[in-house]
């Protein structure tokens, strides 16, 4: 009973991918991994910044649909934690960092296979609870001591970016808490416990209906660039290359854009 159904499903997927591949072939990237040198198999381990959770999950499903024998394990965490795990010898095939600093930690340790490439950019946005209890309208509201405000700690990437935009706008920010990562800051907005938090545009997009995003012009002063690379210790180098190619393909870039990321050049 089960097998014919699986085969039908497999065929559908193959046809679908063939159709996609047809449109994609001009770029030469992505999609082609399956056809050259047979299907991928084994386990692919991807260490990626938390902000990539949704997009990479989707892209992973795409790659798995193309290669039924492939198992993909994601380790989503803050980039510094991932860089520490990698320099301490964690076995992984691909590392995608939310900033160039943490990628440098990994390349300084000589763990990269090939130069890392930038595949996306991200900017900060103000996140407020849906009913906007603090009547926040722009970055200047972060100077109001009467509001309850969250930013990221200066030690983590989103906090470093926040510092930059405040400096660019000449604002003396008065936060009540410096969060350990961007998702923690967002949680406090979702719970309505802060009037506003400074998070990435992609996080606002991922949070859904409970959170409203307010873009601000100074955000362009601190564009965070996301580099990706294969790792020398990769147990599955072929799958690693296929995943990196997929992320940088047109399909990958479309998925990133849909999640609120900027194109790497901007």
């Amino acid at each position: 009973m089960k097998r014919p159904r699986l085969m039908v499903l497999g065929l559908t997927v193959l046809l679908f991918l063939a159709a996609c591949g047809g449109g994609n072939s001009a770029t030469g990237a992505g999609g082609s991994s399956g056809s050259s040198g047979g299907k991928l198999s084994g386990t692919l381990t991807v260490f990626a910044a938390s902000s990539l959770t949704e997009v990479f999950g989707t892209l992973g499903d795409t790659l798995k649909a193309d290669n039924p024998g492939l198992k993909i394990t994601f380790n989503f965490a803050g980039s510094p934690a991932l860089a520490t795990q990698l320099t301490q010898g964690a076995p992984a095939d691909v590392f995608a960092s939310a900033n160039e600093t943490q990628m440098k930690v990994v390349t300084d340790a000589g763990l990269q296979a090939g130069a890392p490439g930038i595949f996306a950019g991200n900017v900060l946005e103000i996140a407020v609870p849906k009913d906007n209890p603090g009547h926040v309208t722009g970055l200047a509201d972060f100077a109001k001591p009467e509001l309850t405000l969250a930013v990221c700690a200066p030690d983590v990437p989103c906090g470093a970016a926040a510092k930059k935009v405040f400096a660019a706008a000449g604002i003396q920010a008065k936060p009540d808490t410096e969060e350990e990562d961007v998702k923690a800051a967002l949680t406090k907005v979702e719970l309505g416990e802060v009037d506003a938090a400074l998070v990435y545009a992609t996080d606002v997009r991922a949070a859904g209906a409970g959170v409203t995003g307010i873009p601000f012009p100074e955000a362009g002063q601190a564009v965070t660039r996301y580099p990706i690379c294969r790792l020398t210790a990769a147990p599955n180098p072929r799958a690693a290359q296929a995943f990196v190619d997929l992320v940088r393909s047109d399909a990958g870039q479309r998925a990133l854009e849909a999640a609120g990321f900027r194109a790497p050049g901007s």
Binding site: D176, E178, E180
Partner: peptide, 27 residues
């Protein structure tokens, strides 16, 4: 602590929080 009290030096940043954040910058 970091969830309910947040992290702000002098008010809510205890040693474990300081350690965690230092790890992000300088192991």
């Amino acid at each position: 602590t970091i969830t309910f009290a947040g992290n702000f030096p002098g008010t809510t940043q205890t040693m474990p929080l300081a350690v965690y954040l230092a790890l992000q910058r300088d192991p």
